[in-house]
Nucleic acid binder design. Structure first.
Length: 348
DNA sequence: AAGATATTCAACCGCCATCCG
DNA sequence: ACGGATGGCGGTTGAATATCT
């Protein structure tokens, strides 16, 4: 038996709002407020609408200071940066963009921004001339918390099929929600992996810091790279999916100068060790004593990240992260390397 | 010009969290 | 402590519109 409906569906109007309904709702709320009860509001306002529908209409269209129309480059950057950091938490992202609603941003991301980023990296012909399904990412378990517990259970045949689908894309850009095989194809030095068969990888979204990973003063680096990053490495190898190698700090700096930044979108570097660092216009993680601190981020966002993190922590030994939705990329320190060598991982 | 196909985006659905009696 | 009511959110749908052939 399901839960009771929030309103009498039979006597409730659905579909687009008429100007008359809009003005009724607007006038009522401006005069009396919402009264903290959306369910009761439509009847009071003389509307044959579900309370939820009224709430949505007000929040997305009628309330003051809503911004519609084109997104600016700066907004694009913020959305990308926040999506990269926290995933599809549209309400959190919207809170950072004055006047934008979560619905707007979600639509914008799904219909334009994602493709815009993809388009910069598509090796194949222009989108228009392809079947629309080719533009869609391969099917992948939802990143929502509903399926979080199952994300590590993807079967290997599913993975191989996903990678087949990915051949439609330029491998220098794996986009979002691409599962990565770890660490079976990469010999990392960590001896304390969990969820090792696959990792749901929402483009550098979150990091877990496992109990077995040492923290020291070395700066280990992860790069989510482009062809450029591959060719720049001192002895990199490419296996079309993932590879890693060492390169010097100076080389990394060169890469950073040349390729980082949102104009390219294909490059990302994270600094492991005492401090985890995202791109300059992102924000920073500091990991210490199994807690995460977020700096350069609004207090609201920090709080939401931290609260979600605690809700979804299912293994206190291995999880500290800023998001509920992704597994981790683990990286360990190889002390046999000199200070000038940085361990680097590439994704193609 | 017309039908087919692709895109957009407002709105809905259903789930989870929180509130409150 | 419990459970129903409501709020809030993210994923999805589908009608309207745009573009292509």
């Amino acid at each position: 038996m399901g839960r009771a409906p929030c309103c009498d569906k039979a006597n409730v109007k659905k579909g687009p709002w008429s100007p008359e309904e809009d003005s009724k709702l607007k006038e009522y709320i401006e005069k009396y407020g919402t009264g903290g009860n959306w369910i009761a509001l439509p009847q009071k306002a003389g509307l044959k609408r579900c309370g939820k529908s009224c709430r949505l209409r007000w929040l997305n269209y009628l309330r003051p200071n809503i911004k519609h129309g084109e997104f600016s480059d700066e907004e694009d950057r913020m959305i990308c940066s926040l999506y990269a950091s926290i995933g599809s938490r549209w309400s959190v992202i919207a809170a950072q963009l004055s006047g934008r609603t979560d619905n707007d941003i979600k639509n914008y991301w799904n219909t334009k921004l994602k493709k815009k980023l993809m388009g910069m990296h598509m090796a194949s012909p222009p989108a228009r001339h392809q079947h629309r399904n080719l533009l869609k990412p391969p099917p992948f378990p939802s990143s929502s918390h509903h399926s979080y517990q199952n994300q590590s259970l993807i079967q290997s045949e599913t993975l191989s099929s996903l990678y087949k689908d990915l051949s439609n894309y330029d491998r220098s850009f794996l986009g979002f929600e691409v599962p990565l095989p770890l660490p079976s194809q990469v010999s990392l030095t960590s001896n304390n992996f969990s969820n090792t068969s696959t990792n749901s990888f929402s483009l550098f979204q979150t990091l877990n810091y496992p109990a077995g990973v040492k923290k020291n003063n070395n700066n280990n680096l992860l790069m989510f790279g482009s062809e450029g990053s591959c060719s720049t490495s001192s002895a990199g190898s490419c296996n079309n999916q993932i590879s890693y190698d060492y390169c010097s700090r100076s080389e990394i700096n060169n890469i950073k100068q040349e390729e980082m930044g949102f104009d390219h979108q294909s490059f990302m570097m994270l600094n492991f060790g005492n401090q985890w660092t995202e791109k300059p216009n992102g924000f920073y993680f500091e990991a210490e004593n199994n807690t995460l601190e977020f700096t350069d981020l609004d207090e609201d966002v920090k709080q939401q990240l931290i609260s979600t993190s605690s809700k979804n922590t299912h293994n206190n030994d291995t999880i500290i992260n800023g998001s509920s939705t992704s597994n981790c990329l683990l990286f360990n320190v190889d002390e046999s390397k000199t200070e000038d060598d940085e361990k680097v991982m590439y994704f193609y």
